[in-house]
Design a protein around this nucleic acid. Structure first.
Lengths: 195, 195
DNA sequence: ATTTCACTCAACACACTGTTGAGTGGTTAC
DNA sequence: GTAACCACTCAACAGTGTGTTGAGTGAAAT
């Protein structure tokens, strides 16, 4: 398994993925055919099937990559630290990093979350966020301990707000800085704590 | 244009729509073919095309119907009244009616919002809600007048929260009453006012 | 020199599409 | 009562994209 062959594989996949993202920016996912992708990327259609089962598999793998990267950021984000900093009026560096990651991968997030693309990325991101961040907060009674609102709604609320912020940010063409985004989100978290 | 022909049309459409909803509950929208729909509804495939351009058009029309119904409820929901009641500790009847409508049409909402059928309904519902409810609140400075958070984020936040509540409610198989849902949402609105 | 590997290319059966034209049976109008 | 009307059925059509295959190319590794 010489490295050069892995490189070829990776480069071919990268070409396919890059072209696919470009197509997604212009065109509805449903209307994009494997033919389109292979044409745009200069890769033979048969080769596409050596790497992916079909276009849904391609999308799935790309979403997975994006979420893996996000997981790296989120695992650095300890609820304790975030709230400790927030109580001092600061925005924790790690929470800014999360938004910085989204900023860096804005093209992919936008493509996968966009109105005309019918993949379940929205829900997937939601579930992911609950599993990697909100879940931790709910486990610890110090953070969320509402009498009036059930846990699953607190969770949903915190997550929907996060996603809403991201979507609005993308719609605004990233007009705000990651720092500003992180601060807004922390305000929301602090509120939910008081629900 | 005798009424009986309209009836036939409507009944055929109703059969198609009902079967389509049943299929959506089991199967990904993408994997549902017009053949599947015509088979399930006992309607000839050719007849399907007399009523709809294609399966996307069918989905679109059904979403439109659902949103039209929701619009009826939302136009009764005056922000002034909602907040006046909330200040007195009450949940306005009209806001309960909104959730009651969702409860009545839970099958459709669930199908259109479900994980595997990400048909853009999520964003559509969001835009709709902003246009029919949140927009009114933002216009009136009495309700939302944040110094620290831009209007579009307030709007996004209020809308995401609403959608999050609905999705969680559907996931919970409507375990809460419309009254409880309305109360939770009002709590959220009251919070956003203070942001 | 031979094998290995990623990729190309052309061909294949298959599934679903949207459309058409002829035909059925019930309803309405004259 | 008969002619026109209408929603629907049915069978057939070309078109498009699918996923798979088998033979072949060229560069790298052994």
């Amino acid at each position: 398994m010489p490295a050069i062959y892995d490189d070829m594989n990776e480069k071919t996949k990268a070409k396919i993925q890059a072209s696919f993202l470009q197509l997604l920016a212009k065109k509805n996912f449903i209307k994009i055919s494997v033919q389109d992708i292979s044409k745009a990327s200069g890769i033979n259609r048969g080769t596409f099937y050596l790497h992916y089962l079909n276009k849904y598999d391609l999308l799935d793998q790309m979403e997975e990559q994006l979420l893996d990267g996000l997981a790296q950021q989120l695992k650095e984000l300890q609820p304790e630290m975030l709230l400790a900093e927030a109580d001092k009026g600061n925005v924790s560096i790690q929470s800014v990093e999360v938004f910085r990651y989204i900023e860096m991968n804005a093209a992919a997030f936008r493509a996968f979350l966009s109105e005309h693309n019918q993949n379940g990325f929205h829900k997937r991101l939601k579930g992911f966020f609950v599993g990697h961040f909100i879940g931790n907060m709910l486990k610890n009674e110090r953070f969320f301990r509402s009498a009036s609102v059930p846990d699953d709604y607190l969770s949903t609320f915190a997550t929907s707000a996060f996603l809403g912020l991201i979507e609005q940010w993308l719609d605004n063409d990233l007009a705000e800085t990651p720092e500003e985004m992180a601060e807004m989100y922390i305000q929301i978290i602090l509120f939910i704590r008081k629900l």
